[in-house]
Write a protein that binds this DNA or RNA. Sequence first.
DNA 1: TAATCAATTGTTACCGATAACAGAATAGTA
DNA 2: TACTATTCTGTTATCGGTAACAATTGATTA
Lengths: 332, 332
Amino acid sequence: MATLSDVAKKAVVSKMTVSRVINHPEQVSDELRKLVYNAMKELKYVPNYAARALVQNRTQVVKLLILEEMDTTEPYYMNLLAGIAIELDQHHYSLQLVTRNSHTIGKCDGVIVTGMRREDFAHIIAQLDQPVVLFGQNEQGYDYIDVDNRKGMQMATEHVLSLGCKHILFYGIDINEPFMASRLEGFKRSMEHVHLKPQICLMKNSSHVAQFEAEKILRSTERRTVFVCASDRLGIGVVRAAQCLGLNVPGDVAVTGFDGVFLDRISHPQLTTIRQPIVEMGKALVSLLLEKINQNGKKVGHRIFEPELIVRGSTIQSVQTLPKESKLLGMN
Amino acid sequence: MATLSDVAKKAVVSKMTVSRVINHPEQVSDELRKLVYNAMKELKYVPNYAARALVQNRTQVVKLLILEEMDTTEPYYMNLLAGIAIELDQHHYSLQLVTRNSHTIGKCDGVIVTGMRREDFAHIIAQLDQPVVLFGQNEQGYDYIDVDNRKGMQMATEHVLSLGCKHILFYGIDINEPFMASRLEGFKRSMEHVHLKPQICLMKNSSHVAQFEAEKILRSTERRTVFVCASDRLGIGVVRAAQCLGLNVPGDVAVTGFDGVFLDRISHPQLTTIRQPIVEMGKALVSLLLEKINQNGKKVGHRIFEPELIVRGSTIQSVQTLPKESKLLGMN
DNA sequence: TAATCAATTGTTACCGATAACAGAATAGTA
DNA sequence: TACTATTCTGTTATCGGTAACAATTGATTA
C-alpha cells in the first residue's frame, strides 16, 4: 500500500532519494540511507513493479521456448517448469510458454530455451534479439545451465563396478547431442580406467524399445548382466525385460538409470539412478537470465550442477525401497 | 512498440478515444471506431500491460495457494500448474506459488486454492480478501472447478460390470472430503443398480498400502476379482499385488484407476482409468478467477468437467498398450 | 425560441516509479 | 580568498495508460 512518496515523507527526503536508496544506495549518504531504510521498514514498503516496468520499458515477461515436443505428463519438464516459475515469481516476472511456432508473438525481456537441437541454433536461437539462456550445454557459446553429464555417468558406472560386476552394457539414446555424448564419454572413461571394453547400444528413448532390446540380450546369456542406462525410461524397460524372463533384479540383472525424476521411483524395484537437481536448475536458469537482462545482454557464462548417485533396489538387494517424498522446496 | 498516442495520431483522434475503443467500444461512434481499428492494425498495436496495471491499481499477479504437501514429482499437480500458467500468460498475469506459511506475503489480484481440507475454510480461505476460486467442489459456497467425480466412478464401475464381473471391490482413500464421497457414491449407485452389494475398503493413498491390502484379499479367494480404485496410485499397487502372486492381469484380476495422469501409463499392463482433463481444468480456474476479478469479486458460480473412461490392458486383454502421447495443448 | 438532454469527443490530472538535469554544500586548489 | 571539483540531494519530465470532468453537437421539449 505504501508508495515511494509515503516513504519519502516519513523520512523527510525527496522521492528521488528513496529511489536511490533502492537502486543506487552508494550514491546516498549513510545518514539518509538509514533514515530511509527505517521508514521503508515501518511502512512495510513494497515497490510497485508495474510502475518500474513502465518507466524502464520492461515487460516483466520471460519466455520459455520449448523446442521439442513436450508431453505434459513428462515429470522432467514439469519440474523444470516449477523451478523456473518459483524463481521468476520472486522477481515479479511472469512466464510465457512458447514453441517453435508461437515464439515471436508478444514482447519479453528475455528467453530461456530448452530442447534445442543442432539445427535450431542458426534458424531460431541466433534470431532472437533478447537476452537468452539455454538449458543444456552447447558448443555455440551461449550462456547455459546444465548438469555434469559425464561425471554423472562415471558415478553410475563406478557404482556398478564397485559391486564387482564385469558384464556391463551401456544403453543410450541415439541422438547426436552434447548431453548424450557426455554421458557416453563418462561411461567409456570409467570402463577404460579398469581396462574393460565398453559395450554400447543406442536406441530410441522408450521403455518399450529398451525392454525389447534387453530381452534379446538376456535370452542369449547366462552371466549376471548390468545395464547402465542413459535415462530412467530406458532403465524401467530393462527392469521389465528381466522380470518378464523370470530373472531376479538385482540378483541376475542390475540396472541404473539417469535423471532421478519420478520414473526411478515408479519402477519396482526402484531404480538406482543419477539424480539431476532439476528444480534447482530451473531456478538457476532464471537467475542467470535476470543477471543478463540487468547487464544489457552481456555474457554471463554458464553453471554446471553436480549430479547425485542414488542407490536403490535395482542394483543392491537390501536397499530401502519406500520412496523418500521430496517436497517442493523454496516456496516461501 | 506502438503506443496509444501513436494510434491516436494515425487515426487523428485523441488518446482517450482509442482507449475507449479498447475498453468501452459502445461509447464510440461507428466511424471513429473503424478508423481506430484500422490504425491499430496498421501499427500492430499491443497494449502496455504495465501501464494499465499501474493506473488500475492491479498487480497482475495471481497466487496459487497449495494447502497440501505438494511433491514436485506428482504429475497431477504439474499438469494443473501447466494449465494455470498457460492461461494466466494469455492475460499477462504472473503466477505466484504460495503455501500455508507464505500466502500472506505480497499483493495479488486473486487467489486459486487447491488441496484444501474442511478445517481450512474458516482459518484460511475465509480470511482472504481478494477474489478466490477453488480447485475442487465444496459445500461452503465458494466458486470452484471440478470434475464430475460421481459420474466418473459410475463409468468405471459400469465398465467392469459390462465385462461380466461380479466380485467387485472398491479401494478408496480414507479422507472425509467431498471428492472422495462423490467417488464412493458413484460406485455405490452403480452397484445398487444391478443389485450387487458394494464392498468398500478405505486406505492411505499409497501404492504400497494398496499392494499390501490387495495381496491379503487375493490370497484368500479363487474367484476372478475386480478392484475399482479411487486413484491410479492405488490401482498400480493392486496390479503389482496380482503380479507378485503370479496372477494374470486382466485375466484373474482386473483393475481400474482414477485420474489418468501419467501413473496409469506407467503401470504394466497399463491401467484402465477415468481421465480428468487437468490441464483444461487449470485453464478454467484462471478464466473463472479473471472473470471474478473483473466483476469486483461477484459470485461467478462453478464449472464441472466431464470425466473420460480410458480402457486399457488392466481390464481388457486385447487393448493396445502403447502410450498415446498427449502433447501440451493450447500452446499453438 | 430558448432550455434541456443525450451522445460523442477532448482535456486534464494522475497512477508510482526513474532518468536527466539542476542546485547546494563541502572539500580541494591556486 | 576566490574558484573549481566533488559529493550529495532535489526538481522536473516522462513512461503508457484510464477516470473524471468539460466541451461540443444535434435532437427534443416546453
